[in-house]
Simulated scan of single mutants.
Amino acid sequence: MSRGQNSGGLMSSAGLVRYFDSEDRNAPQIDPRTVVAFGVLFGLLVMVLNVV
């Protein structure tokens, strides 16, 4: 690889890091346990509906 070429690895992800690093104060905050519980309940619902 020549010296003048930039692979763009870190520079191309800099915008994403800046985007995900900033948190909106007005955004709804959801507890991770709530998300897991919802996923488990949804999975159980699907299993029950498969049986019926």
Results as ranks from 00 to 15, higher is better:
residue 23 E to Q: 12
residue 15 G to F: 12
residue 9 G to Y: 14
residue 45 L to K: 04
residue 47 M to F: 10
residue 23 E to Y: 08
residue 16 L to P: 00
residue 33 R to P: 00
residue 43 G to D: 04
residue 22 S to E: 11
residue 9 G to Q: 15
residue 36 V to G: 00
residue 47 M to A: 14
residue 25 R to P: 03
residue 19 Y to P: 00
residue 33 R to D: 10
residue 51 V to C: 01
residue 23 E to A: 09
residue 30 I to S: 03
residue 33 R to E: 11
residue 44 L to I: 03
residue 33 R to N: 14
residue 40 V to C: 02
residue 26 N to W: 02
residue 27 A to K: 10
residue 44 L to K: 05
residue 28 P to G: 02
residue 29 Q to I: 13
residue 34 T to N: 04
residue 5 Q to C: 09
residue 16 L to I: 01
residue 35 V to D: 09
residue 12 S to G: 06
residue 15 G to C: 03
residue 21 D to P: 00
residue 23 E to V: 14
residue 18 R to T: 01
residue 32 P to M: 07
residue 3 R to P: 05
residue 36 V to A: 08
residue 2 S to K: 15
residue 5 Q to W: 12
residue 13 S to P: 00
residue 17 V to S: 07
residue 27 A to D: 05
residue 52 V to W: 03
residue 27 A to Q: 08
residue 48 V to K: 06
residue 1 M to A: 15
residue 42 F to E: 06
residue 28 P to R: 12
residue 41 L to D: 04
residue 46 V to A: 15
residue 4 G to Q: 13
residue 51 V to K: 15
residue 5 Q to G: 03
residue 26 N to V: 06
residue 52 V to Q: 06
residue 28 P to Q: 08
residue 47 M to K: 04
residue 3 R to A: 12
residue 29 Q to R: 15
residue 46 V to W: 13
residue 30 I to A: 06
residue 12 S to W: 02
residue 11 M to K: 13
residue 31 D to R: 03
residue 42 F to P: 00
residue 44 L to N: 04
residue 17 V to D: 04
residue 25 R to G: 02
residue 13 S to N: 09
residue 26 N to R: 03
residue 43 G to P: 00
residue 42 F to K: 07
residue 6 N to P: 00
residue 44 L to A: 13
residue 15 G to R: 11
residue 39 G to M: 04
residue 45 L to R: 05
residue 5 Q to D: 03
residue 27 A to S: 10
residue 17 V to G: 15
residue 4 G to L: 12
residue 34 T to R: 02
residue 4 G to C: 11
residue 26 N to K: 11
residue 13 S to L: 12
residue 36 V to E: 05
residue 44 L to S: 07
residue 2 S to I: 11
residue 21 D to I: 02
residue 48 V to I: 14
residue 7 S to L: 10
residue 8 G to S: 12
residue 51 V to E: 14
residue 18 R to P: 00
residue 51 V to S: 05
residue 1 M to D: 11
residue 2 S to W: 08
residue 36 V to P: 01
residue 17 V to C: 04
residue 6 N to R: 08
residue 6 N to D: 14
residue 10 L to N: 07
residue 49 L to V: 08
residue 4 G to H: 09
residue 15 G to V: 10
residue 35 V to N: 11
residue 8 G to E: 07
residue 37 A to W: 06
residue 15 G to W: 14
residue 15 G to M: 14
residue 14 A to N: 03
residue 7 S to C: 15
residue 14 A to L: 09
residue 42 F to A: 15
residue 10 L to A: 09
residue 26 N to F: 06
residue 41 L to H: 05
residue 6 N to E: 10
residue 31 D to I: 02
residue 27 A to T: 04
residue 7 S to F: 08
residue 41 L to W: 09
residue 10 L to I: 11
residue 30 I to C: 02
residue 20 F to C: 09
residue 33 R to Y: 07
residue 48 V to L: 12
residue 40 V to G: 00
residue 27 A to P: 01
residue 32 P to Q: 08
residue 22 S to W: 06
residue 49 L to W: 12
residue 22 S to L: 07
residue 32 P to F: 03
residue 39 G to W: 02
residue 48 V to N: 02
residue 31 D to L: 05
residue 26 N to Y: 02
residue 40 V to A: 05
residue 41 L to M: 10
